[in-house]
Design a protein around this nucleic acid. Sequence first.
DNA 1: TTTTGAGTTGTTCGA
DNA 2: GTCGAACAACTCAAA
Length: 475
Amino acid sequence: MGPIIVWFRRDLRVDDHAALYHATRVGLPVVPLFVSDTELTRRLPPDGAAFNFLTEALAELRKNLKALGGELMTRRGKVLEVHKTLLKELQPQAIYFNRDYEPSSIEQDSKIEELYRKSGVEVQTFKDTLVHEPSEVLTGDGKPFVVFTPFANAWKKLSHPAPFGEARRFTTAKLASDGILGAGELKREVSIPSPVLPGGEKQANRRWRMFLSRKIGSYATNRDLPAVDGTSMMSPYLRFGCISIRKMLEDCRKAHQSAAHAERASIEKFVDELIWREFYHSVLYHFPRLLESNYRREFDRMPWKFSVVLFNAWKKGLTGYPFVDAGMRQLNQTGWMHNRARMVVASFLTKDLQHDWRLGASYFEEKLMDIETASNNGGWQWSASTGVDPKPMRIFNPRLQSERYDPESKYIKQFVPELAKVPAKFVHGPHEMPPALQKEIGCIIGRQYPAPVVDHAAVSAEYKRLYVAVRSHNS
DNA sequence: TTTTGAGTTGTTCGA
DNA sequence: GTCGAACAACTCAAA
């Protein structure tokens, strides 16, 4: 009897892993497989934080599989070609893998399924990435939800799948030695200074337990303050599947039961964020065109601007708006950005600079270590007012956001060091410093730190006119 | 079919 | 500085 292939993609863990759990219960040898050139890895820049995270997660996966008695097989090459080769080489009994919902993955996976099925090999796919799949959360009419709250209500009514638990020990069938990569071969030179979040299952659990015991109770307020370590930072771990979403949800429910009243609201808020992740997965699944186009079609007429100078200022964190600049520099330096800052920089690019949200979305794809296409697309379309959010136009005031969410300017000063000596009174608007003060503290506007690249009041008024014009055209 | 009510994360203004 | 209302006024799920 041939082995069972368990194909790992965005689910780099051994604990509570649907496909691995089920495969190790059959009693056949199991070949855990990772193909380096998947839909996941192809888009990751090799010098980016996400790639670094991935290699760490993979190295640990290899170790954890070994502890279960198995051996990770890593192959490089086109996915379909790799599977064709393995079909001959291993003559597997079956292939198991967890489902992925991105449009490109769906297309790829159906080809893989067909390949194995045609050869009489059993194919089993599993729900693993989400608590509830896009096909499970539908309106009464069987249509997809496009407003969050009704989606969340329907989601909460469904009974949640319990964690499966540990995989059994297994053996890996003797592998042909050719074409198998060593552990280090996927590793490339990376130049990310001390990643804030190390990849892998162990780190995922460490961070999660710390968040559960010390942070989740104050999540509702602290999550909005970029200078405070108040968010879970689980996004990269979820992106690469270093932790099980079923387990996280179960932990939240247990914590909720034993929590004080005040903390319960915070835990519910956190669960809502997990539901947002599933909501945007569902939206993209049902409307794959959103990767390229506006949900609200009338925005196809939006006369987005483009300026190399302004776009570069945004990318580099040199807009003259300290909070925006802090966010962008955090992204560039660490591969991660606080959620509050993500909203502010996205609003700034789309509303103040009036640049197409797709430009911002691709820059995030390039830089974020937690890049999840569904969430990224949903977030950017939300910011640009082109998406499924039913609220009317929303323009963030970057100055106000700065004062409200970074009142002590700790975040700004951490990532925009040239503002370190600017007094509290001026730190959210350094260009207002009198020239003498600029000179005194060695932060001259236009030299050490830029003047605002646009005037918020003027450009937001302009944006409002464009918005009204675009929308009224519709009827 | 029509009606009703609610909507992640905002901003501004005036008391 | 804080608070509530006005802003704008649209979509869409569900009754």
